[in-house]
């Protein structure tokens, strides 16, 4: 059997202008995960922090250095040993900022 993989599109051309968290996503079957964030429009600086959860309800930051987005383009961050749930937390460096983004979560056994 080949190793299974799955890519979930977590956000599609979504525009954020305030702090946000993505919807919880179950990842218990996967050994490796990689976030891809395609920034289509950006006004300000956006920091994206991967978060982990044991139950999809209560969350903490991953120990990794978060992604800091200062311009349009494709950004990525990989994770291992992440437990059963993942999401991204986003926050802007200043008020009156906004970002239009695609978010993918690529998972592999």
């Amino acid at each position: 059997m080949v190793r299974r993989s799955f890519t979930a599109v977590i956000e599609k051309n979504a525009t954020f202008s305030a702090p946000f968290e993505t919807e919880p996503y179950e990842t218990g079957w996967a050994e490796e995960a990689r976030w891809f964030v395609r920034v289509l429009e950006l006004d300000g600086q956006l920091t994206l922090t991967p978060q982990l959860s044991p139950d999809g309800l209560f969350w903490c930051d991953d120990e990794k250095v978060p992604m800091v987005v200062r311009d349009k383009g494709l950004y990525t961050l990989s994770l291992r040993d992440f437990g059963n749930w993942l999401r991204l937390r986003g926050e802007f460096a200043r008020a009156s900022s906004s970002a239009k983004i695609m978010i993918y979560l690529a998972l592999k056994e």
Binding site: F6, A8, Y25, E26, G28, W29, P54, D55, G56, N84
Partner: peptide, 23 residues
């Protein structure tokens, strides 16, 4: 152009493989 996605169907969420894990 994903900006053209109709509001009715633009966000039907990706399916998940769940272990039915609860708090």
């Amino acid at each position: 152009n994903l900006d053209d996605l109709r509001p009715l169907l633009k966000d039907m969420r990706p399916p998940q493989l769940s272990s039915c894990t609860f708090f």
